[in-house]
Amino acid sequence: MKDLLQTGLLIGGGSLVALSIASFWIPKALGWREKLAGLTPLMRELWWTYSIYVWSSHVFFAVLALGFGDWLMGGSGSAIAMCTFMLLWWSVRLWLQFFGFDLSEIEGSAANRVAKHLLTLLFIGLVVLYAGLLAWNTGWLPPGGPR
């Protein structure tokens, strides 16, 4: 199970790096500049500020998964807290993917459909990964967790 989780962390971390890089294309793909043009300057500034901070959080999660996997599987209180937080983060994002966003205005091109399915797959994978890590750290997974 430990090997599986370690592999999951590598794949999850790599996927987060890919997501962070791909995020640079999101504003263009969704036409943010044109769509935000009608907002007041402050709302536009808030928009970009929030977006960049969420993006930086994804980069940090990637750094954690790729550089601090041992710590994330170490069974410490802080590892449990971090895994719980990331599990909540991605669970809510997965829920939003299915029930939160109104995607009807997005062009139904093949590329957009593929991107949507890849994102859904990524969110499912991350939820499973962090649920697994949480279960491992709390000792719910065989062979009895790290302690």
Partner: peptide, 21 residues
Amino acid sequence: ENLAGAEPMVRQIFHVHCAYI
């Protein structure tokens, strides 16, 4: 009020980012 004129997706992404921060 400021987001009222924006497209639904723009409004939703704003709310999501705000909530995550």
